[in-house]
Amino acid sequence: MTQISPHPPLIVQITSMQPPQTGASTALALQASENEDNLPDNLLLYPGEPGEILVSLKNTKSLSQQWKLEIKGDFPVGWCSWNNSDFQEITPQQRLELPISLMVPEDFFENQWALDRSQQRLQIDYQIYISVFNQTRGEIQQVACQVFKLCVRPDTSYSDFLPSIYREIDFVGRLLSIFEQAFDPVVQTIDAMWAYLDPLTAPEALLPFLAHWVAWDIDNRWSLDIQRRLIRNAIALYRWHGTRHGLRLYLHLYTGLPLDEHLPEIDKHISIREVFNDGFVLGPTRIGEDSMLGGGRPYHFIIHLRVPESHHIDINLVREIIEQQKPAFSTYELSL
């Protein structure tokens, strides 16, 4: 048995926690909606942003009361955070504030169910019914009821450039959102143009163009990260081609091993040592320091790579890199 009490034991106040001026108004609309009702409140909801309704209860009696909050409407159940449908107790003179949060999915206008061809139009207006009941001696009384219109609208910043009188027109806001969604990707692309021209952040489809821009040949044996690093440093590799610094830089970009500029040559992860010792010498000398047996090898250098066990590199590709970067008349030894 449900009835509305003329003298409710609970004082109930149901308020939309949204400024009135942000509601979807149709007062100045060119054409009113067919189903437009004179509802007391509107709640404007943006996809991905929470909206809130506050229910305030106060027990004015000297005895504890049993209350229950009931929410109904034609909106999807998952939008509302309130799921308690049992009676609860409120002590004398106690005041409760119950926030009801509503969240529209961020992809409301883009997902497949919203674009179902079986629907003639996308529903963007819903209703929510909030009722408060009181139970006394087995009798259930409805002490308050409030109806809100839920207006789901795309968030647009273009309306900020309009006079305030046009911001209140719901049709104008929805029309501007079409232009914003069409032009906003272009504006964002222009603002982030630097990222499209940097090989480290550019889309993968743009890498061939950037490589052609600096006359760099892409080798499919390299991973995507290595290709990005090589294209970005192509000019530096050209400048130092045929030098010790250029070869170390190339090996660093391919293998990912540190350059260790602050360490002695023998302790570096990428070590390149040239042999300057004299050959067979008669007289005071120290073998291995200032002379060597068997004679010297001019234009010869030794490359030593300290590769961790978990680090995998292609030794054949390393040799190809060395052959491309070293002077044609020089020889080398490679050790891992």
Rank of each mutant, 00 (worst) to 15 (best):
S118C: 06
K61S: 15
D217L: 09
P6S: 09
L150Q: 06
Q93Y: 10
R174W: 01
V275L: 08
I313R: 02
R117Y: 04
L98I: 14
N38R: 11
P199F: 04
P199Y: 07
S291R: 08
I303R: 12
V281N: 15
Q66E: 15
G173F: 00
L96D: 15
L176I: 00
L334D: 14
L150N: 11
P92R: 00
T2P: 08
P9Y: 13
I287Y: 12
T201C: 04
D290F: 10
R153H: 15
V172P: 05
L210R: 03
D41F: 02
L263H: 02
I14E: 14
V104M: 03
L305N: 07
A211L: 05
L162K: 00
V152C: 09
Y332G: 12
H269L: 04
D170E: 05
F183D: 02
P76R: 11
A114Y: 12
M1H: 01
E309C: 03
T201R: 08
S335V: 02
I226A: 04
N316K: 05
W222K: 06
D314G: 08
S25E: 05
W240P: 08
E139N: 09
Y196W: 02
H241E: 13
L305C: 03
Q13I: 09
P99M: 10
A202K: 00
D155L: 14
Q188P: 09
L230S: 07
L57E: 06
S223V: 03
T26D: 03
S101V: 08
R228H: 07
W240L: 11
A234S: 10
Q135S: 12
I313P: 14
L230Q: 10
N316Q: 12
V281L: 14
A144W: 04
I178H: 01
M17W: 05
L305Y: 06
P258I: 01
P298Y: 15
L39S: 03
V147Q: 09
S33Y: 09
S56N: 10
W67L: 08
I287S: 14
W240F: 13
D219H: 03
W213V: 01
D37C: 06
S310N: 15
Q324F: 04
I226D: 14
K68S: 04
Q21T: 11
A192H: 06
I231F: 07
E89V: 12
F276G: 14
V152I: 15
R95D: 10
K68A: 05
E110A: 06
T26K: 06
L317N: 13
L197A: 09
L257T: 08
T189G: 08
G73V: 01
R286A: 11
I11T: 13
I11P: 01
G295W: 03
L150Y: 02
P8Y: 02
E168M: 10
R273Q: 13
L150H: 03
I302F: 14
N35F: 08
P308T: 00
S291V: 06
W240C: 10
D198K: 07
I4K: 15
R239S: 10
S62Q: 04
E89D: 08
P6E: 06
L293Y: 10
T26Y: 11
E309A: 15
D225L: 09
L334Y: 08
A195H: 01
F280K: 10
S177I: 00
S25N: 14
A182Y: 07
G288S: 00
I140G: 00
G78A: 07
T243F: 01
I165N: 12
S81N: 15
Q123T: 15
Q135D: 03
